[in-house]
Amino acid sequence: MDPHSTNSEQPIALVEGELRLIGGLNERLFRLLAAIEKIGSINRAAKEVGLSYKGAWEMVERANNLCPQVLVSTAIGGRHGGGTKLTATGRELLALFTRLQEEHRRFLESKNRELADNPNLVFLLRRLNSKASERNQLFGKVTAVRIGAVTVEVSIALRGGDTLIASITKASADSFGLKYGDEVMALIKAPFVMVVKDFGGYRLSERNQLKGTVKRIQRGIVNAEVVIELAGGDSVAAVITTESLKSMGLREGDTVWAVVKASSVILGVGT
């Protein structure tokens, strides 16, 4: 999308923010005040904005206590019946907040359009916004795609020079349309990461053997989390048993290898 397009499509929200006045007077309160002004009943206004009757009253009472003059008044019974309405001060404050909201919206839209011009920043912020349950999320570029009879082997260059190999199905590779130079996210569950301190003269068959330094060890009763820092600054977390931790004599600062099966690497691509 052209970030300067004049159509109604909004730029990607790289910068977000809620407008809040001093004292915690936030958008939810003013949505409630607007509903009270429109409906004239705090009970029905609360339902409209998704609050309980008690929660709405607590919000209104706190706002009334904070402000020099009451924002909301309630009439009980009488010739014209009961009801809740905004005072003149309440209507004035609501109008002020509405104007501020519109200025705030225009400001955010302007900043997002400016940031959308920088592709590196857009990709960085998309990375920060990625959501996945896997402990390890590594980002890199595709350097090779090797198609086999059943699976496709994808080589990913991590920062620092390490190469990570992922083995995925041909169907997944076809749906991704992976090619050289594509930016991808590699997801690895921490229990799938083996920690090797000494190969003992043997060579392992696993394709991924990432050399690093033990940065942190979080000990538990049954398991321990070992965080390994790779040459380029990426961190890989492994979950091993506390018994294995003791038998290996692992300490922070030790040189180790994070060993991962290629089939245990899940790939994610941008949409």
Rank of each mutant, 00 (worst) to 15 (best):
M1D: 14
I12L: 15
L19Y: 12
R20W: 11
L21K: 07
E27T: 15
E27Q: 15
I39N: 05
S41V: 15
R44L: 14
V49N: 06
W57G: 09
M59G: 02
V60H: 04
A63M: 04
N64F: 07
N64G: 09
V70I: 12
A75D: 15
G83I: 10
T84C: 03
T98N: 13
R99H: 12
L100D: 02
E102C: 11
E102Q: 14
L108Y: 10
L108R: 01
L115Q: 02
D117P: 00
D117Y: 12
D117K: 14
P119N: 07
F123W: 10
N129K: 13
S130V: 15
K131I: 13
A132R: 07
E134A: 15
E134Q: 08
L138W: 01
F139R: 05
V145A: 00
I147W: 08
T151F: 08
T151N: 14
V152Y: 00
V152A: 12
T163L: 06
I165Q: 05
A166C: 04
S175E: 04
F176P: 00
Y180C: 00
D182H: 01
P191H: 03
V196L: 02
K197P: 01
D198I: 12
D198K: 00
G200R: 02
Y202I: 04
N208H: 10
L210S: 06
V214K: 02
Q218H: 09
Q218N: 13
V222N: 03
N223G: 05
E225Y: 05
E225M: 06
V227K: 01
I228V: 15
E229Q: 15
G232P: 01
G233I: 02
G253M: 04
D254K: 08
D254F: 00
K261P: 10
S263W: 04
L267C: 13
